[in-house]
Design a protein around this nucleic acid. Structure first.
Length: 606
RNA sequence: CUGGGUGUAGCUCAGCUUGGUAGAGUGCGUGCCUUGGAAGCACGAGGCCAGAGGUUCGAAUCCUCUCACCCAGACCA
C-alpha cells in the first residue's frame, strides 16, 4: 500500500494499474477458431476471446478487446491533445440533408448506412463527419480570431461495405478517431500547413507509441496540390495495400500516387513485320489473348478509353500501356489537364470504340480523341487490338501505323503524348534518385491525413471576416485513424503460431501471473503480493487463478499474448523464485528471485 | 452487386449419394484420480439439423423459394 495520498489525487500523474482475476472476468478462449475466420488477426482475436462476431462486419468487443481499444484510444487522445486538438463528440445519426449538401449522399452511394425514423425523415449513420463538423463550426466560429481550430472525436463509424472482411480490418462498424482543422490561410502562423505538419508528427508519435512498425506514404494529392495527403501504413505481408518505397531516398507512396522516375523512350525500330489480323473471339483479359497469339502480355499494348467529364462536346482520352501494366487514372487526368472517368462501355461502343479491342490508332482517325502513351509502351513491335470486335493484330509498329502524328521528345503537347500513366511497380526507377529502384511492400492503412482545402466550407458557405475585414472561405484539413483496425494491424504484424504478441503499450494487461495451484495458499498469497506491488507501480495485471491444469494455462497465456508471464509454482518456490518469461521470447522462461520479480518485470515494461 | 462455397451441439465437423430412433471429437456440468504445455476414467446436460413451402405413410437427407455467413473481385480508417 502506498504511504502517501497521491494515488487519490485528481491531478496526480501517477497511474495505478488494474488488477483482475481471470476467473472473475470473461476471456472465452477457443481451442479451435470459428470456421469463418481466415485472417491471422481475425482468428487470433476470436480465439483469444477479444471479440466475437455478431453479424457480417459487426463485432462484440469482449473485456480483453475492449481494454486494447481503450489503450490505443488513450494514446491517440494524449497525442491529439498534445498537438493542440480538442476532443468533442458528434452524433452517429446524421440527417441525410447534411450529406446532400455536398452530394456525398450520392458519392458515397450504398456505402452510406441509411435509416428512416418514425416520421419518415431520412438519416445516415455517419461514415465520417466533415459535413457535421463544418456545420457545427459554421454556427459557432464567426471570427478569424477563433482560428485556427482543431477538434477531434473518437467514435464508432458506420460504412455499409460491399464486402466486410478479415474481422476488424474491414468492418461495417468500427472505431475511428477523426479530427478536423479550420484555418484562414494555408501558409504561415495558424495556417493549414502548420497544423498538418503537427498532425503528421502526432500520427508518427501515436503509431510509434503503439509499438508498430509503419511507413508513411504519399497519397493522392488533394485540391491544394503538393504532398497534400499522407497515409500511415503498418508494414505487414498480409496487408491489402501495396506501397512503393525507394530504399535510397526514403521516398514512399501508395500505388495510386507513386511517381516513376524518368524512363527513356523512342518510336524507332528496325523491325519490318507485317501487320496481321488475328481472330480472338471470347477472350476476356490480356492474358488469354496473349496466350492465344503466342506472345507474352508484356509484348502487348493495352488501351483504355476514358471520357472527359463535363463540357458540352464529348471528348475521349485513350491511355496505352504495356499489357502487363495497369493504367493509372489520376496520372492520365494530370497529363490531359481535365477530369476524366472510365468511358461508359455502351456509350463508347456507340461512339465507335470496339471496347476490348481498341488500338491506339483510333486516336489518329478521330478529332475528339487524345492519346497518352506510357514510355514502356513505345518502341518496337507489338500485338494490340484491331478496333474490330473479336480481332487483334500482331506486328503493330508505332512509326509505321501511326506515322506522322507521333510526338518526339522535343515536341510534346499535341494530341498524342508520351507520359507516365501507369501504376508503379517493383523495380521501377525511383522518382527521387537516378539509378535507384522502387521496392514494393504490403501494408495496412491505419491513418490518413488530408488537406481538404475549401471543399466543405464552400458547400456550407462557411466564411469568416479576416483581419482586413474581408470575407474569406475557411480552409480545412482532416485527419483519421482507424482505432479498431490499428489493433488488428498490430496482430497481423506481431503474432506466432501460438497466439498474439501484444506490444507493451497496447497490451490489455502487462502481466499475467500464472498460479499453478490456486488452492495452494502460499502460491496465491504470493500472486496477490506481486500483483499488488506491480499495480502500485502502474502495471496492469491479470492473475490466472483458474483451477485448470498448467498446460491449459500456459496455452491460454500464449494465446492472449500479454508481454510478461510470471509463473508461481512449487518448483520455483522451493528455490525462493518465480518463473519469468517474456511472450516475445521462446522457451520456458527463467527463474528470478521473488524479491527481484517486480523490479525485473517493471524493467521489461519500461 | 457478380462469381464460388458453407449453414447439423458453445467450437471443429461427420451423416445427405440410396428418405425410416440425431452422431463424433473438443468444450460444458458432477465425481474420482491428478497437477509444468490443452492428461485419464466414469456419469451427465446440451440440437425446431438456418427458415418457409412442397413431394412422401415418413424429410437433416429429395425439390422450390428465402435468409444468413465465408472466400475472390471496381474501395477504404
Amino acid at each position: 500500500m502506498s504511504t502517501t495520498d497521491t494515488s487519490n489525487s485528481p491531478i496526480t500523474n501517477r497511474r495505478r494499474g488494474t488488477l483482475q482475476l481471470w476467473s472473475r472476468t470473461l476471456i472465452p478462449t477457443l481451442r479451435e477458431a470459428p470456421a469463418e475466420a481466415s485472417t491471422p488477426s481475425h482468428r487470433l482475436m476470436l480465439r483469444a476471446g477479444c471479440i466475437r462476431q455478431v453479424g457480417a462486419g459487426v463485432y462484440d468487443f469482449l473485456p480483453l478487446g475492449m481494454r486494447v481499444l481503450q489503450k490505443v484510444s488513450q494514446i491517440v487522445r494524449e497525442e491529439m491533445d498534445a498537438a493542440g486538438a480538442s476532443e468533442m463528440l458528434m452524433p452517429a445519426i446524421v440527417p441525410i440533408e447534411l450529406y446532400a449538401g455536398t452530394k456525398r449522399d450520392v458519392d458515397y452511394g450504398d456505402l452510406l448506412f441509411k435509416l428512416t425514423d418514425r416520421h419518415g425523415r431520412d438519416a445516415a449513420l455517419g461514415p465520417t463527419h466533415e459535413e457535421t463538423v463544418t456545420e457545427m463550426a459554421k454556427g459557432s466560429v464567426t471570427s478569424y480570431k477563433q482560428l485556427p481550430l482543431n477538434v477531434y472525436q473518437i467514435q464508432t463509424k458506420f460504412r455499409d461495405e460491399f464486402r466486410p472482411r478479415a474481422g476488424l480490418l474491414r468492418g461495417r462498424e468500427f472505431l475511428m478517431k477523426d479530427a478536423y482543422s479550420f484555418h484562414t490561410t494555408v501558409e504561415g502562423d495558424g495556417g493549414l500547413n502548420e497544423t498538418y505538419d503537427r498532425m503528421y508528427q502526432a500520427y508518427v508519435n501515436v503509431f510509434t507509441r503503439c509499438g508498430l512498425d509503419f511507413t508513411v506514404v504519399e497519397a493522392e494529392a488533394g485540391p491544394i496540390g503538393g504532398s497534400a495527403s499522407h497515409e500511415f501504413m503498418v508494414n505487414a505481408e498480409t496487408g491489402e495495400d501495396t506501397i512503393l518505397v525507394c530504399p535510397e531516398t526514403g521516398y514512399a507512396a501508395n500505388v495510386e500516387k507513386c511517381e516513376i522516375g524518368d524512363r527513356d523512350w523512342s518510336f524507332d525500330t528496325d523491325a519490318t513485320t507485317d501487320l496481321t489480323k488475328k481472330h480472338t473471339p471470347g477472350m476476356p483479359g490480356i492474358d488469354l489473348v496473349a496466350e492465344h497469339l503466342g506472345v507474352k502480355p508484356e509484348g502487348m499494348l493495352k488501351t483504355i478509353v476514358f471520357a472527359k467529364i463535363g463540357g458540352d462536346k464529348r471528348k475521349y482520352v485513350l491511355a496505352t500501356v504495356r499489357g502487363d501494366h495497369d493504367v493509372n487514372e489520376g496520372k492520365v487526368r494530370d497529363v490531359v489537364g481535365f477530369p476524366i472517368a472510365l468511358a461508359d462501355e455502351k456509350e463508347a461502343k456507340e461512339a465507335g470504340f470496339a471496347i476490348g479491342y481498341v488500338s491506339p490508332r483510333m486516336a489518329a482517325t478521330r478529332d475528339d480523341t487524345l492519346l497518352v502513351i506510357d514510355p514502356d509502351a513505345t518502341g518496337g513491335v507489338w500485338a494490340t487490338g484491331s478496333d474490330e470486335k473479336d480481332h487483334h493484330v500482331t506486328g503493330f509498329i508505332w512509326a509505321r501505323d501511326l506515322g506522322a502524328d507521333l510526338p518526339t521528345k522535343d515536341q510534346q503537347g499535341g494530341k498524342i503524348r508520351v507520359a507516365d500513366v501507369r501504376n508503379a511497380g517493383e523495380g521501377d526507377p525511383s522518382p527521387r534518385l537516378p539509378g535507384a529502384k522502387l521496392v514494393a511492400r504490403r501494408g495496412i492503412e491505419v491513418g490518413h491525413i488530408f488537406k481538404l482545402g475549401t471543399k466543405y466550407a464552400q458547400a456550407f458557405d462557411f466564411t469568416v471576416l479576416n483581419e482586413q475585414q474581408k470575407k474569406t472561405t475557411v480552409i480545412m484539413g482532416c485527419y483519421g485513424i482507424g482505432v479498431s483496425r490499428t489493433i488488428a494491424a498490430s496482430i497481423e504484424q506481431r503474432h506466432d503460431e501460438w497466439g498474439i504478441i501484444w506490444p507493451v503499450p497496447i497490451a490489455p494487461y502487462h502481466v499475467v501471473i500464472t498460479v499453478m495451484d490456486p488452492k495452494n495458499d502460499e502460491q496465491s498469497k504470493l500472486a496477490d503480493k506481486l500483483a499488488t506491488e506491480l499495480v502500485e507501480a502502474g502495471a496492469d495485471v491479470l492473475i490466472d487463478d483458474r483451477n485448470e491444469r498448467p498446460g491449459v494455462k500456459f496455452k491460454d497465456a500464449d494465446l492472449i499474448g500479454l508481454p510478461v508471464r510470471l509463473t508461481i509454482g512449487d518448483k520455483a518456490l522451493a528455490e525462493n523464485c518465480v518463473e519469468f518469461k517474456l511472450r516475445s521470447e521462446d522457451g520456458k522462461g527463467r527463474l528470478v528471485d521473488i524479491a527481484d520479480a517486480v523490479k525485473e518485470t517493471l524493467s521489461k515494461l519500461a
